[in-house]
Structures are given as structure tokens and as C-alpha cells.
């Protein structure tokens, strides 16, 4: 294996030499939380289960933005239960953006791959081994979960929400042709250096942030693989899709349309 890698002389070969033995690959899950006291223990339990069943080396980095509901206390308990080498609590004083949460988390990440997901149980850790398999299969820079392809789907959405989601996705595909089917999803695996580079470039907030990450990835010629996922809308707590979200989504979409 080593010889076939070394014999290639394309610009990629240098990168491929850096690819480590699968056993040495480590996956850092970044979990930004805000008032997820109920969900955090459950998602961590599911993560530990999924990783240990498939024998993957991992760590979970919890970035709590000063939740008033005691998320931090629960995180500290989880740190004790599972060990401080597996569960790392790296809180911040107050609510700052998602992008800075990822930057903050990555500073403490020791893995060479980063997985980002929501802590509200809408993203199930059982898909992570599939993400990893997909990444290795195509040596992708990014693997994105998709609700819109193959066996992917959603649970807990009414007709109106489905129409808005499918409509927004259709318009986005027509306008941006991004090369990935789920732009607003936030269940993804990145090479660490790729995520670092992308975050430097991205300026948007909210839904548009995830969309901009994929659009910038295409600009920088990063490769993207996709894995169908089932998205189970918030079990505890409220899911939000108001007029404000739609307006800011459209603004963000048009900004990306005009500038990228």
C-alpha cells in the first residue's frame, strides 16, 4: 500500500502520504450546546455506543455557551462517567456564534477528522460509521449527511414545513449548483484542516452558515461525499422555523448567489 502511494507523482500524493493508518485516525465530535440539559446525556450515550461498537477512536468536545439550565453540570457528570479523555468540556461564557464555537472546539481537538452535529437528537450517531466508510471510499474532504437523497428523510415535519424545505432546497440547487443535495443540514464530517480553512472563509450565521460552508468548499475544489440520514426533529424542546428564519435564509441565499 505504501509503495503505491509513494509511486504516484500527482500533487495529491503528498497529501495521501499524510493519510494515516485507519487505526490512528481519530474523530473529534464537536457538540455546541445551549440549554440541552435533557438531550446532552442521551446524545453522548448514543455517541459512545456507536463509536465503541465500531471500534473507532474518538473524543467528544462539548462547547456549552453558558446555558442557564445546567447543561454544564450534566456535562461535568458525563466527563466523570466516561473519562476526561473521551468527553471534553470546553465551555464559553456566553452565547457566541456557531462558527466561533467550531473554532473554539477545534483548538482543543486532537483528532484528524472533525464531526459536527446537533446535540438535540435530530442527528443520530449511528450514521457516523457510515460517514467514515464513505470518506475512506472516496478519500473525500467532506462527507455531508443528506435528508434529500436515497433513504434519507425527516420525522416530525408537517406538510407546510416539507414544502418550505423542498422549495428552498430546489431554489438553492438551481441558483447555486453546489454539488451537494443538503446544504442547510449540519451533520457532517470534515478533515480537520479543511474545516479550519472553510471557517476562515465563512461569514454567515444560522442556516446560511452551513450552506456557505458547502459553497466555499466547492470554490476551493474540496471533494464532498454524501450519506443519506434520517432527521428526527427535536424530541425535547422546540424546533424553530419562523418568518425570520425564512427571510434570513433568502437573504443569505441571494448574497451567495451574487458573490460566489
Amino acid at each position: 500500500m505504501a509503495s503505491s502511494e509513494a509511486s504516484r507523482s500527482s500533487p495529491r500524493s503528498r497529501r495521501e502520504l499524510e493519510v494515516r493508518n485507519p487505526r490512528q485516525d481519530k474523530y473529534s465530535v464537536l457538540l455546541p450546546t445551549y440549554n440541552e440539559r435533557e438531550n446532552l446525556p442521551l446524545i453522548v450515550w448514543l455517541l459512545v455506543k456507536s463509536f465503541s461498537e465500531s471500534g473507532i477512536n474518538y473524543e467528544v468536545i462539548i462547547i456549552d455557551d453558558g446555558s442557564p439550565d445546567g447543561t454544564r453540570d450534566v456535562a461535568e457528570q458525563l466527563e466523570k462517567i466516561y473519562g476526561a479523555d473521551r468527553i471534553l468540556l470546553r465551555p464559553r461564557e456566553k452565547k457566541l456564534g456557531l462558527g466561533t464555537a467550531y473554532i473554539h472546539g477545534m483548538k482543543h481537538a486532537t483528532g484528524n477528522y472533525i464531526i459536527i452535529m446537533d446535540a438535540d437528537l435530530s442527528h443520530h450517531p449511528k450514521f457516523i460509521p457510515e460517514f467514515i466508510r464513505k470518506q475512506k471510499e472516496g478519500n473525500f474532504d467532506i462527507v455531508s449527511g443528506t435528508r434529500y437523497k436515497g433513504s434519507g428523510g425527516v420525522y416530525g415535519w408537517d406538510l407546510k414545513r416539507k414544502i418550505i424545505s423542498r422549495g428552498a432546497n430546489f431554489i438553492t440547487q438551481i441558483l447555486l449548483r453546489p454539488g451537494a443535495s443538503d446544504l442547510t443540514g449540519s451533520f457532517r464530517l470534515y478533515r480537520k484542516e479543511v474545516l479550519q480553512k472553510l471557517i476562515e472563509k465563512c461569514v454567515s450565521k444560522g442556516y446560511v452558515f452551513q450552506m456557505e460552508m458547502i459553497v466555499r468548499a466547492r470554490q476551493l475544489n474540496y471533494t464532498i461525499g454524501e450519506v443519506p440520514i434520517s432527521f428526527v426533529d427535536r424530541v425535547y424542546g422546540e424546533s424553530k422555523l419562523g418568518g425570520n428564519e425564512i427571510v434570513s435564509f433568502l437573504k443569505g441565499l441571494l448574497t451567495l448567489f451574487a458573490t460566489t
Binding site: L121, H124, R166, G167, F170, S230
Partner: peptide, 23 residues
């Protein structure tokens, strides 16, 4: 297209049930 995709949007009932029992 949008109508077809809305109509064929998978409802992941099984995933929701599985999650509940795992919780």
C-alpha cells in the same frame, strides 16, 4: 418537481421509534 419531492419525502417513522426506545 417540488410537489413530487414533497410527496415522496420519507417519513422516518422507524428512525423515530428506534430513537425513542434507545432513549
Amino acid at each position: 418537481i417540488v410537489g413530487y419531492r414533497v410527496a415522496t419525502f420519507h417519513d422516518c417513522e422507524d428512525a423515530a421509534r428506534e430513537l425513542q426506545s434507545q432513549i
